[in-house]
Nucleic acid binder design. Structure first.
Lengths: 338, 338
DNA sequence: ACAAGTTATGTTATCGATAACATAACAAAA
DNA sequence: TTTTGTTATGTTATCGATAACATAACTTGT
């Protein structure tokens, strides 16, 4: 394994100083047009590849934004990250992604791993974190943005919505169509804090209308799959055959519930209405189409990215200037609750 | 913004040298148990966070494996990356992810970005790349692994399968059940090279049986969504109403096709059989369940991770030791082609 | 009790780029 | 012509950890 080519080699070959080579690689540095072209040509010929690690180390600017999401395999979070990346790319910022697997202990681990790499900002999904996570982030001295939630006691900035509140409108819609015996299918545990918030919101929305929130079906550990949604629906149909509507913690479980109905010959929405959450692609194309809530993941991503750019440009620092950006989820009525 | 805490500060506070602090943070370094505990305690109290950039820079060991996938929002690739991450984590290797958006030009850009960060190995999805990508990787002097394909002229190691060959079994299965007028729904362009390979494989498989491969329905730019699958199915039913079976480039488009059949009152599998690719969750739960091909994404990820670990341990270097690992995709017969 | 081996710690040089400052060469303004 | 300003380039110190080597302190075997 031969020694790697460095700027020094390029500089020697080009008969200039290392600093001039360094400048040739920057957009806005003052280098003669001829010289720059010559240097870049020599660099390419020598097979030189810029060393970000060295540059990062010296300049103490990593160009990283760290983003923690619960799972890689979730279209909602993928959309948020995608939109955020687009916005950040224009400011020469790269996204460093990590997965917490719906577990705030694992989140603590990845947050610490993130901080070791000195990101310029850090984005979390959700508003519940371990004490140590909070402490680490408080000390890190970089912008922190919590997303997909409206935490009561935020660490820093927030771009999100109230998961609980979305259930109010949804329950309202179902009740307006004459359905009062409504069930909720969600995770057994509170690992998915947004899912747990939705369950809480469901219970409150029912109680506000003096309806019994006694049909809570646990479907396993988050995230709830299509299969688990189907299994939960099966149990619901067995134990509470007079149920008129069911709200599922996500579109995936809602679709699973739909398939169970199809297999059992239960008619949706005539026998039972079904609603999901997330406005996944499947919700608008399955038969019947799903009533769902669109939390507008791309908007969360875009606004988070824009906020980070503002913050890194130095606008609005200090605790006094914490930003709260509310996203308005949108109720999308499908054939499954017509 | 106060100056960040460094090892020097911790060392001073603990009354030891910086080197001892450095050792206290390593697993296998020789430090007194007492001393290590004391140092870690002081570090935590001071709010010290290890600086990976500095460590990486000095040791010239980044601990990164760069992985390029076409899209973040694809369960198959997510599964591969997930399994790979698990295996690599045990060797203290982190995955740095990049998205090519089904475009080998964009792939070239992210490969160059990757190389700037000096990954210890690089994983690509697919076997078609630009000339410059190949040149960059040849010179990079790190293990290169192409996955999800069996390239004719591989850059380095390979963990994959022949996308074209999978179509042989699938067509065979459909023909065995008496269906000969078979259509293929896939992308219009060759951006998704694996999808294009499947289309080629379909055509060859048909021709091998002296069947006409003249029902090729373009469904837009890759990746093909459920909606595009449904639209393509609509066109297929209109233009070739006597079609007996349709193979879709992925389960998502196949599911879209299923929904279109449901809407049009076309019975699956009695009127037309439908098959997909990928063994996504949806294939085993939708009604009817989908016939599909399981390319075993986790196995690709796991074996790739294990190969990287072997290579980085120094086993089998040199061009003479290029490894080819074949994955056996599995035909999974569902109700949609019974 | 002493050699040889082991464990814990310190010292020095260094990874490859860039910030900060310095200066040469030339152009424009006075 | 001299001053001032601009552009292109060079010089020096440095970011924070760790490899490599050195050594002190302690253990073990004979």
């Amino acid at each position: 394994m031969q020694r790697a080519v460095t700027m020094k080699d390029v500089a020697q070959q080009a008969g200039v100083s290392v600093m001039t080579v360094s400048r040739a690689f920057k957009q806005h540095a003052s280098v003669g047009e001829e010289t720059r072209k010559r240097i870049l040509k020599i660099a390419e010929d020598l097979g030189y590849v810029f060393d970000s690690n060295a540059a990062t180390f010296r300049s103490q600017r990593t160009g990283f934004v760290a983003v923690a999401i619960p799972s890689i395999n979730n279209a909602n979070f993928a959309d948020t990250v995608g939109a955020m990346s687009e916005v950040l790319k224009e400011a020469d910022l790269q996204v460093l992604l990590g997965y917490s697997n719906y577990d705030i202990q694992e989140e603590e681990v990845i947050v610490e791993q993130f901080l070791r790499r000195r990101p310029e900002a850090i984005v979390l999904t959700g508003g519940r974190h371990t004490e140590r996570t909070r402490r680490l982030l408080d000390r890190a001295n970089i912008p922190v943005i919590e997303t997909w939630d409206l935490p009561e006691d935020p660490i820093g900035h927030v771009v999100g919505f109230s998961n609980a509140a979305t259930m109010h409108d949804l329950v309202g819609h179902l009740v307006a169509s004459g359905r009062t015996r409504i069930a909720f299918i969600g995770g057994d545990t509170d690992g998915d804090t947004r899912g747990a918030d939705r369950r809480r919101g469901f219970i409150r929305a029912m109680e506000d209308r003096s309806l019994a929130a006694d049909r809570l079906i646990g479907a396993g550990d988050p995230p709830i799959s299509m299969r688990e949604g189907a299994d939960a629906m099966s149990r619901l149909l067995e134990n509470h055959p007079d149920t008129q509507a069911v709200i599922c913690v996500s579109d995936l479980s809602a679709f699973g519930a739909l398939t169970e109905c199809a297999r059992k010959g239960v008619k949706v929405p005539d026998d039972v209405a079904v609603a999901g959450f997330g406005a996944y692609d499947i919700s608008s194309i399955c038969v019947p189409t799903l009533t769902t809530v669109n939390p507008r993941p791309e908007e969360i991503g875009r606004k988070t990215g824009e906020l980070i750019r503002r913050l890194l440009r130095g606008e609005g620092t200090g605790d006094s200037a914490l930003v709260q950006i509310g996203i308005e989820p949108e109720l999308s009525i499908g054939e499954s609750s017509a």
